[in-house]
Lab assay of single mutants.
Amino acid sequence: GIPATNLSRVAGLEKQLAIELKVKQGAENMIQTYSNGSTKDRKLLLTAQQMLQDSKTKIDIIRMQLRRALQ
């Protein structure tokens, strides 16, 4: 079985993952909103794209940590 310490770690990672998935969803929504907007929305679009990139990276890292914890 999986050690108890790993189980609480997994629960924490799953919570983090859920949050990051919401951030990713929000960033994707912002990108959709701003991509057909005016030029003043360009900065917001770039910010949203950066957020999305960061979020995807975090999600990958969390998933990797989850896999390790579940081994």
Rank of each mutant, 00 (worst) to 15 (best):
Y34Q: 02
I2T: 07
L66Y: 02
N29F: 09
I62K: 00
T39W: 06
T33W: 08
D41I: 02
V23E: 02
A4P: 06
K22C: 13
I59H: 01
K15T: 04
Q50R: 14
I62N: 00
T57N: 13
A48P: 00
R9P: 06
V23W: 03
A27M: 08
K40A: 12
E20D: 01
Q71G: 08
A69L: 15
T57D: 14
M64K: 11
L7V: 13
K43I: 09
E14F: 15
Q71T: 08
M64L: 13
I19F: 10
L70Q: 12
L66F: 01
K24S: 08
A4G: 12
L21N: 04
E14Y: 15
A18V: 05
L13P: 00
L66Q: 01
I62G: 00
S55F: 01
L17D: 00
E14Q: 15
A4M: 07
L17P: 00
G1C: 15
Q49T: 06
A69N: 04
Q16T: 03
L46Y: 07
R68C: 15
N6T: 11
Q65S: 03
I59D: 00
T5Y: 11
V10H: 02
Q65H: 07
K58W: 02
M51K: 04
E20A: 08
L7K: 14
K22H: 06
A4S: 11
Q32M: 11
K56N: 14
K15R: 11
G37Q: 07
K58M: 04
T39G: 07
A11M: 06
R67P: 01
M64D: 14
P3T: 05
R67N: 05
Q49W: 13
L66N: 00
T47E: 12
A11G: 03
S8V: 07
K24N: 02
Q50V: 05
E20K: 01
D41R: 03
Q49N: 05
R63P: 00
G37K: 06
T57M: 13
T47G: 08
A27K: 01
K58R: 09
Q16G: 01
R63C: 14
Q53A: 11
K22P: 00
Q50Y: 04
L45W: 05
K58C: 05
I61M: 14
Y34I: 08
I59G: 00
I2Y: 05
R63N: 05
A27S: 02
L66C: 02
T33F: 09
L21D: 01
G37A: 07
T47K: 14
T47I: 13
Q49M: 12
M64V: 08
A11Y: 08
Q71R: 08
Q32C: 12
I31C: 05
R68K: 05
L45A: 03
S35D: 04
Q25Y: 05
P3S: 05
I59R: 00
T57S: 08
A4H: 11
Q53K: 11
I62A: 01
Q49I: 14
T5L: 11
R68Y: 15
G37I: 03
K40N: 07
K24D: 01
N6C: 15
R9T: 15
A69Y: 11
A27W: 14
K15Q: 06
S38C: 11
T39I: 10
T57I: 14
L21W: 05
G37W: 01
G26D: 15
L66D: 00
E28V: 10
M51L: 10
Q53P: 00
R63A: 04
K40P: 09
M51D: 05
T47P: 02
V23Q: 07
Q25T: 09
T33Q: 13
L70K: 07
D60G: 09
L21G: 01
Q65F: 04
V23S: 03
S38N: 08
V10M: 03
S55L: 03
L70Y: 08
K22I: 08
L7Y: 06
L7Q: 09
A27D: 00
A69Q: 03
G37D: 11
L13Y: 03
V23K: 13
M30L: 10
L21M: 10
L70A: 06
E20F: 12
I62E: 00
K56F: 05
S55V: 15
I59A: 02
T47L: 11
L46M: 11
T47W: 06
Q50W: 06
T33K: 12
T57P: 01
L46S: 04
K24P: 00
L52R: 02
R67Y: 11
K22V: 08
D54P: 00
R67S: 06
R68F: 14
I61V: 08
N29W: 06
R42W: 14
K43T: 09
Q65N: 04
G37M: 06
A4R: 05
K58N: 03
T57A: 10
T5P: 10
T5N: 12
I62W: 01
G12C: 15
Q53T: 07
L13N: 00
S8K: 12
Q71L: 11
A69H: 04
S38F: 09
L7H: 15
K58G: 01
E20P: 00
M64N: 09
Y34N: 02
M30W: 04
G12M: 15
I62S: 00
M64E: 14
E20Q: 15
N6K: 07
T57F: 06
I61F: 10
V10I: 15
Q32A: 13
I31N: 01
Y34A: 05
K15W: 06
M51Y: 03
Q65E: 14
Q16I: 10
D60H: 12
Q49H: 06
A11T: 05
S35V: 08
S55G: 02
T47A: 13
Q71H: 13
R68N: 10
N29D: 13
L66S: 00
G1H: 11
L13W: 04
P3Q: 08
N6G: 12
Q53R: 14
N6P: 10
I61P: 00
D54G: 05
R68D: 14
G1N: 09
R67Q: 11
I59C: 03
M64R: 13
M30P: 00
N36D: 07
Q25V: 06
E28P: 00
A27Y: 12
L13H: 01
Q49D: 02
V23C: 09
K43S: 09
Q32P: 01
Y34T: 02
L45Q: 02
G1F: 10
R63Q: 08
K58A: 06
K15F: 09
G26L: 13
R9Q: 15
Y34E: 01
P3A: 05
T57L: 09
Q65L: 14
I62F: 02
L46W: 07
L46F: 06
M30I: 05
A11W: 04
P3M: 06
Q53E: 11
M51C: 07
Q65R: 06
Q49A: 05
A4D: 11
Q25C: 12
M64C: 14
L46N: 07
I62T: 01
M30A: 09
K58E: 02
Q25L: 07
T33M: 14
G1S: 12
G1Y: 05
Q16L: 12
N36Q: 09
N29S: 07
N29K: 12
R9V: 15
N6S: 11
K43M: 08
D41W: 02
N36M: 06
K22W: 05
D41G: 03
S55N: 02
D41F: 04
R67D: 12
I31T: 01
V10G: 02
G1K: 12
T5W: 14
S38E: 11
N36T: 13
Q71I: 08
L7M: 07
S38M: 08
Y34W: 06
G26K: 15
M64H: 10
L52D: 01
M30E: 03
L17K: 00
Q71E: 09
K58L: 03
R68V: 14
K40I: 13
N6A: 09
D60L: 14
V23D: 01
